[in-house]
Design a binder for these strands. Sequence first.
DNA 1: GCCGTACCGTACCGTACGTTACGGCAGCGG
DNA 2: CCGCTGCCGTAACGTACGGTACGGTACGGC
Lengths: 217, 217
Amino acid sequence: MQLAVDVGENALTERQKDVLDAALALLVEAGDTLTMTSVARRASCSKESLYKWFGDRDGLLTATVQWQASKVRAVPVNPEAFDLASLTAGLQRFASDWLHVLSGTISVALNRVAVGHAGSDKHDLGVIVLENGPFAMARRLKPLLELGRDTGLLHFYETDEAFRTFFGLVVRDVQIRLLLGDRLELTDASIERDSLRATQQFLALYGAQTEAAEGGH
Amino acid sequence: MQLAVDVGENALTERQKDVLDAALALLVEAGDTLTMTSVARRASCSKESLYKWFGDRDGLLTATVQWQASKVRAVPVNPEAFDLASLTAGLQRFASDWLHVLSGTISVALNRVAVGHAGSDKHDLGVIVLENGPFAMARRLKPLLELGRDTGLLHFYETDEAFRTFFGLVVRDVQIRLLLGDRLELTDASIERDSLRATQQFLALYGAQTEAAEGGH
DNA sequence: GCCGTACCGTACCGTACGTTACGGCAGCGG
DNA sequence: CCGCTGCCGTAACGTACGGTACGGTACGGC
């Protein structure tokens, strides 16, 4: 349950970052079938360097996942005047951001390899993606939820329950369908619409004020 | 979008079914790293027979997935007297069944290999699992939802929207966390509790009668 | 100018595994 | 009893790929 990204050991040369970006691109294109040779060729570096820098294939994959994770850092929302409008806006923005990340080719590719490697792995990629995916989302969202509860705008007993419900309302079957290869067109407009719907549904379930919210559509 | 399981070509010998069950067991144990040799040894059959029956490794995997899919057939719920109680019971039973399947080792293993193979595949396993997973769930649930709407118990415009919301409320982050290797204890009691919660939340959002449903906990 | 370091490109090695081939055996129709 | 068929067990083949070794080059310090 520790933070999986070793910030202290982030001693990455620019050259090495370029290599990891190349590995990312190949991961998106070829998935888990990428070879050390292909990475070396794409990045115009020698395999010897790959092994010196990252140890072995697993090390390269791990470094690649962590490198990507380090790029998408949280943007904390900390409004001064907190009311229903800013809570709603925060939730919707959060949902929108999450759907955008989730449906990106890089996220899909990384989740695919992590799922494929989960279970039988030493440098468990699954744990890393878990840590930087759902768990990171929870860490980012929970302060907002608890602020909403403390200001009387939301009503729930377990923060985790509330978060997971919001997760379900936002993600629904989108992620698993994308991972399984379903062609699912997520336009900016549809994401905005879905974020709003999820937010309104969440407020209808956990909002402390009006109960007259119309759920569907 | 056709039914992926060729029922017409389901000419499977008992021997072949045994072989596929062995392959399933190995898939659960070793994931995608199972070898043709290991399947042959586990099933006490020759590799020659494997290739004669299933063509190649991909064919074996495909047949295995389809074989498992053919085992979990739908149990249609078609009550005579339809009221809020039977609707609620149907939804909750559905959610419970789905969570049980979802968290089973076989489902996790199959979804892992399907996700791993998705995208760059000819016999696309992802499509098969998609067809027998989320899509099958939708086909099974939609009649119940539309019956609820036609009898005035539910209120929604798009059946698909209602289904996907229910999916989100039931599954939440459970599936992705399991696929990524998170140790997630789902006891019968917790599944029952979650099914009830999801059902009540769904009714709070789409139910046409009372709006006073308490969302959380 | 000389050496050490870092790195590229490439050739090479070992192995795992998909795929094929073959010998042997059991059952069965004639 | 003979031959055919289907299958098991295993050996053999080919290749892809992870990992290693090595020659060649650029560069910075002395």
